[in-house]
Design a protein around this nucleic acid. Sequence first.
RNA 1: CAACUGGGCCAGGUGAUCGCGGGCGCGGCGGCAACGCCGCGCGUGAGGAAAGUCCGGGCUCCGCAGGGCAAGGUGCUGGAUAACGUCCAGUGGGGGCGACCCCAAGGAAAGUGCCACAGAAAUCAAACCGCCCUUCCGGCGUGGGCUUUGGCUCACAUCGGGAACGGCAAGGGUGAAACGGCGAGGUAAGAGCUCACCGGCGGCCAGGUGACUGGCCGGCCAGGUAAACCCCACCUGGAGCAAGGCCGAAUAGGAGGGAGAUCGGGUGGCCCGCCCGUCCCUCGGGUAAGGUCGCUGGAGGUGUCUGGCAACAGGCAUCCUAGAUAGAUGAUCAUCCACGACAGAACCCGGCUUAUCGGCCCAGUUGCCUU
RNA 2: GCGCCUGUAACUCAGAGGAUAGAGUAGCUGACUUCUAAUCAGCAAGUCGCAGGUUCGAGUCCUGCCAGGCGCG
Length: 122
Amino acid sequence: MALLARLKRPEDFRRVYTYGTSYVHRLMVLYVLPSGKDPSRIGLVVSKKIGKAVVRNKVKRRLREITDSTRVPGGFDLVVVARGRAREANFWTLHGAFSSLARRAGVLAEGESAAILAEEDK
RNA sequence: CAACUGGGCCAGGUGAUCGCGGGCGCGGCGGCAACGCCGCGCGUGAGGAAAGUCCGGGCUCCGCAGGGCAAGGUGCUGGAUAACGUCCAGUGGGGGCGACCCCAAGGAAAGUGCCACAGAAAUCAAACCGCCCUUCCGGCGUGGGCUUUGGCUCACAUCGGGAACGGCAAGGGUGAAACGGCGAGGUAAGAGCUCACCGGCGGCCAGGUGACUGGCCGGCCAGGUAAACCCCACCUGGAGCAAGGCCGAAUAGGAGGGAGAUCGGGUGGCCCGCCCGUCCCUCGGGUAAGGUCGCUGGAGGUGUCUGGCAACAGGCAUCCUAGAUAGAUGAUCAUCCACGACAGAACCCGGCUUAUCGGCCCAGUUGCCUU
RNA sequence: GCGCCUGUAACUCAGAGGAUAGAGUAGCUGACUUCUAAUCAGCAAGUCGCAGGUUCGAGUCCUGCCAGGCGCG
């Protein structure tokens, strides 16, 4: 499994927003920017618009579970922004949304993409 | 049994697999070492409100903070406490049949302001209607005198009549509120003018630490509003763990001591005071990202004994119970039931307030039924 | 962590403790016009964010909440 480093600094987020490519889903938005650095870095954004602290933590934990278990090759900076509807979504809905976005963005490791396609066919 | 009152407690459980933060142990790798990384095992990991940030402290730095003015807060009494605007016990007032609950509850005879509308008048009192004495005019009546029998005049009595100088504040009406209420005496009419009772005020005595309560006596009455300004008493220095200390590359700057007229800047808003910039001397260290400490063992929990009505305090025994740093609790099942509310630590405590599914326990009140 | 502001008609805002809480825009009705716009006249519209309290009387004063917004580190 390719380890994902964490994207933390405000400048990094701003760079990905301005120069990266965005992929939109009704539950979330995925920003992708090639960085050239080996461990790909990922940042999660769950704003106060989503809900109170308990709700935000819940959404953030589910997104972290999903992104930690997804294999991503090196060389990318990713930002996942949760949208309002993510508040009501369960784990598997969020998982499907992220997988489809990641496949469209082409940031999945070898073999992962085919597995997701097979899963979606079911 | 029903309807209530007060207080306390719980906050889905159990099992399995994968994953995360901290701790401990073992093993491996790197390193002189401190230590870092990886793997395995054990154990541990959000709340009663963690929330709002409404108060109070601890802790840390600012300059250990002094004087005056201002500003803010608290406000029945006594106590508890590190402290409080909190808590406990009481006093007074209000509510409830009751258990019980509620109250920012000092001062209005220090001063100022305000009291719309209505009303005569909204506070050094005054007098619209009204009540009353006297005088004058007028009406009606009785008696006397004079008489030209038409009347004139005097006296007395009387009047829902008019006017004037005065007396009064009982009654009317207005209003949230009208120099105390009610009854009797008194009077021309009235009035604490006098008297009894009540309210309020002052003094004395008794009880109580005190708020206050009870009794006696006195004089005779003082509108409300201070969550209007204010007065009185007491309290408050400012910032906040992104406080603050240490390590520390590039780069290139400081720190300490002494002197101090002016000017400038700083310190809680202002003034005084104080400090810094300026000048001289000495020293070799200072700052950003990052790392690390602060960081959790504490006004700590539980049990018991002693003191106290209680809040609480003290003694003994026993337990260790998150410390992250973009921020750790999730995912997939099985099973049980009451089908799970409000909600996530970020330096730490004591309170207050607000949110909250369902359930349990203790003490008590009222009503009904039965024995 | 700390500090500040706002909440009144559908919208933007006024409002000295004492009226039936006002103004402009928007809305409705009528007049004018061939019709519309403009103009004129009239009408309707409010839990004064919520709950307590002070006061004879509260949109206004006090306390506690709720919602929204802003600033500093």
